[in-house]
């Protein structure tokens, strides 16, 4: 019963600006996906569209082959835990933590109340507190509780770690992995903070300015890159013919980030004249999306 959540040719325009340019993404069942992109890349918009919370200007979005738009059955299996707004139409959001929990209990078909209460206690969330009075960190934690306890076969978290410090972030990923080990459900986590995330995401989708620039297995992607440094001429010789993404020069030394096939990289590593080291997901992300700053 493995259902894929898929978008093809997705276009979204806000006012006069096209925010998503013909995006093709596919989320297979049972994987933990990382949707990474800079602020403003369009992550939330993409997630909104694929969960039918916003309509797309063009393209098809399907879950298990059926369109998601106004599809009661499909939407019952997808949970989109987005940032909870502290301001509602006429001022402060006066709903309380327990209101969100209650609503979730009444609306999510697979809701696990016990687990939810456990998490609330673990995070130290005050049930009676108004959402508008919560700190950023607590707000993130509420979102996390809603997502994890929803038990939805496809659970999407939009920047869940935005308000969390590093200790809380690591805790979150532990919880996520624990739950994943038990339920094997599909998780899609959007974030731009990558330190702890890289070892958690089996697959990764990189969104840059409304375009999907990479999509695939995290490990396989990261292993295509190397950091090469040494004397300028030797570096240039060593990386001839490879795709160079970043360059740093200082005096006679030069350092570059290259991307190439496994064969070429293995050969490169045999080269005694230059120093080679691998990149991590964060550095790959910066190399792929940070260039515009010159």
């Amino acid at each position: 019963m493995a259902k894929t959540l898929k978008a093809s040719g997705l276009v979204k325009v806000y006012g006069k600006k096209e925010v998503l340019h013909s995006v093709d993404v596919e989320f297979e069942s049972g994987c933990i996906y990382g949707l990474i992109g800079r602020n403003g890349a369009g992550k939330t918009t993409l997630l909104s569209c694929i969960t039918a919370q916003t309509w797309a200007n063009a393209g098809e979005i399907t879950y298990g082959g059926e369109p998601v738009w106004e599809n009661e059955k499909a939407l019952g299996e997808i949970c989109f835990a987005r940032e909870i707004s502290q301001i509602l139409f006429m001022g402060q959001n006066t709903y309380k933590v327990r209101d969100y929990l209650r609503a979730a209990k009444l609306l999510y078909p697979h809701w696990d109340e016990q687990y939810a209460q456990q998490l609330v206690d673990r995070f130290g969330l005050e049930r009676k507190k108004r959402v508008s009075a919560l700190s950023k960190g607590m707000l993130s934690m509420l979102t996390i509780v809603l997502a994890l306890a929803s038990n939805a076969p496809v659970t999407i978290l939009d920047e869940p770690v935005a308000g969390l410090d590093v200790v809380a972030r690591e805790d979150f990923y532990k919880l996520l992995l624990d739950n994943y080990a038990k339920t094997q459900r599909t998780f899609i986590v959007s974030t731009h903070i990558l330190d702890e995330a890289a070892s958690v995401f089996e697959k990764v989708i990189i969104l840059d300015d409304g375009n999907v620039i990479e999509q695939g297995n995290t490990d396989e992607l990261v292993s295509q890159f190397r950091y090469v440094s040494g004397k300028e001429e030797q570096v240039d010789e060593a990386v001839a013919g490879m795709k160079v993404l970043l360059e740093e020069k200082a005096g006679r030394s030069k350092a570059v980030v290259v991307r190439s096939s496994e064969q070429n990289l293995q050969q490169l590593e045999q080269n005694p004249d230059v120093d080679i080291s691998p990149l991590n997901l964060q550095k790959v992300f910066v190399a792929l999306t940070g260039q515009k700053e010159g």
Binding site: A52, L75, F80, S85, F89
Partner: peptide, 17 residues
Amino acid sequence: AMTGRVFPLSMGVTRKQ
């Protein structure tokens, strides 16, 4: 419509519902 919709629409209820 103004504030009550926050829950159903963001928790998987369709607009028709």
